[in-house]
Amino acid sequence: MKQYGAEFIGTFWLVLGGCGSAVLAAAFPALGIGLHGVSLAFGLTVLTMAYAIGHISGCHLNPAVSIGLWAGGRFPANKLLPYIVAQVAGGIVAGGVLYLIASGKADFTLNAFASNGYGEHSLGGYSMQAALITEVVMTMMFLFIIMGATDKRAPQGFAPIAIGLGLTLIHLISIPVTGTSVNPARSTGVAVYVGGWAVEQLWLFWLAPIVGAVLGALTYKAVASE
Rank of each mutant, 00 (worst) to 15 (best):
E200Y: 02
V177S: 12
T150Y: 05
A159L: 10
G189K: 06
W197T: 03
I210L: 06
I173A: 15
W197R: 02
N183R: 07
L169M: 12
I163Q: 07
N183T: 00
L172F: 15
P184Y: 08
Q156W: 13
L202D: 00
N183E: 06
I170M: 13
E135I: 10
T168W: 07
I175V: 15
G196A: 14
I146T: 05
W206K: 01
L143P: 03
G195P: 05
V192C: 02
A159Y: 08
A191G: 08
L169C: 14
P184L: 01
V136T: 03
G179E: 03
L132P: 01
L167V: 04
G148K: 08
M128R: 12
I163A: 07
T178P: 10
G212E: 01
T168E: 08
G195N: 08
V211N: 09
M138F: 11
A185F: 06
W197D: 06
E200S: 09
L207V: 12
R186D: 07
A208C: 10
T150K: 05
S181P: 11
A208R: 09
A130S: 13
G179Y: 11
A154V: 14
V177I: 15
P209Q: 02
I170A: 14
A149I: 01
A154F: 11
T134K: 09
P209K: 06
I146M: 02
P160L: 12
A185P: 04
M140D: 03
